[in-house]
Design a protein around this nucleic acid. Structure first.
Lengths: 193, 193
DNA sequence: GTCTATACGGAGATAGAC
DNA sequence: GTCTATCTCCGTATAGAC
């Protein structure tokens, strides 16, 4: 069932929403990418809202999987948070071209006052609560959410500016600073004990 | 000539582009906001590109004026940079509702691969070079641009996350951290002498 | 499930009267 | 300068044949 037409539509829509934005992507674009007719498209999804909802659900599932994997692979919270920071490096090229998939969708749906806005924010919240948990494990119970939000905002800012200026060395330099900041967090929590 | 129809159109378009986004704003929206007919609109601006270009030019001019004013009002570079950081507080409400006017336009035009993308980036560059100059005055010749970019990214990240979560206390907390970071920059440059 | 044909509205844009 | 009327294209969405 992995290559069913429905799955192909979701994959194509996911990609196009990221690269062109939701509003800018038409049913014709998606149908063309999949290689089906517009009419057939409507057999699978009745409205544009519905396809967006489904794409966000898939992103939520994929994000959960990724976070679970980081949890399984990494030995401790510091290494896990480093995994988060390093997606900026791993996805450097895509981020420079199209921005952060999470942040750009939240920003677009916020401006459209779209029904699925909260659903899109939920993807960001997945990272927020996961990071929160890691900071708690680091001994930062009191300010874990503030640290998670801080890291989220830093990442989003880096992605936005890197996208505007198409600057990859900027990403590298900022990631270094984030890793230093993380080390300082660790030192601070160790110190407090 | 301040209240000419042309000026009113630019003002209305500027506001609507910020609140709804460029793509989402139609000529009908702008015409209705001004109280003129669609036909009349085309007497003043032939294409949507042209009105966007004009709006960006106005934003560039307004930004230059603001930066000049900060330069005139503040005694030194530290206080000037603080003025920049504090717009996050001053425009807190608008930023929570619609994001940063500079960042959201850059992000949207990047995704549309719009002709005016570079023009929109130019507004951000105005802040970048101005901040660069302030950091040089602070004694940070070597890393002035990196510091300017860092501050730009931090601000954009704060605006994006604040917009997503509509969280004003987050903005306050992050601004405090930015001001602390700035103080640390000053201490570092003083120390180096 | 997939297609073609088509309805319908809204967008950008133009023509020409006043 | 401002209006109404109109054109054209493209978007979402539907109907019905295969």
């Amino acid at each position: 069932m992995q290559n069913s037409t429905r799955e192909q539509i979701i994959t194509a829509a996911d990609d196009l929403f990221y690269r062109q934005g939701f509003e800018q992507t038409s049913f014709a674009n998606i149908a063309e990418a999949v290689g089906i007719s517009r009419g057939n498209f409507y057999y699978h999804f009745k409205t544009k809202d519905e396809i967006l909802k489904t794409v966000i659900q898939r992103r939520l599932a994929n994000t959960r999987d990724m976070l679970d994997q980081w949890e399984a692979e990494s030995s401790g919270p510091v290494e896990r948070i480093r995994s988060f920071v390093r997606i900026l490096i791993g996805n450097r090229g895509k981020i420079m071209r199209h921005g952060c998939p999470v942040g750009t969708l939240c920003a677009e749906l916020a401006k459209l006052e779209h029904l699925q806005r909260d659903a899109a924010n939920e993807v960001m919240t997945l990272f927020r609560t996961w990071l929160h948990r890691q900071f708690v494990a680091l001994g930062h119970e009191a300010d874990a959410d503030a640290l998670a939000m801080h890291l989220l905002a830093r990442s989003q800012g880096i992605a936005l500016v890197a996208n505007a200026y198409q600057d990859s060395s900027f990403v590298d330099a900022e990631v270094e600073q984030l890793l230093d900041w993380l080390d300082a967090c660790v030192a601070q929590s160790t110190h407090a004990e």
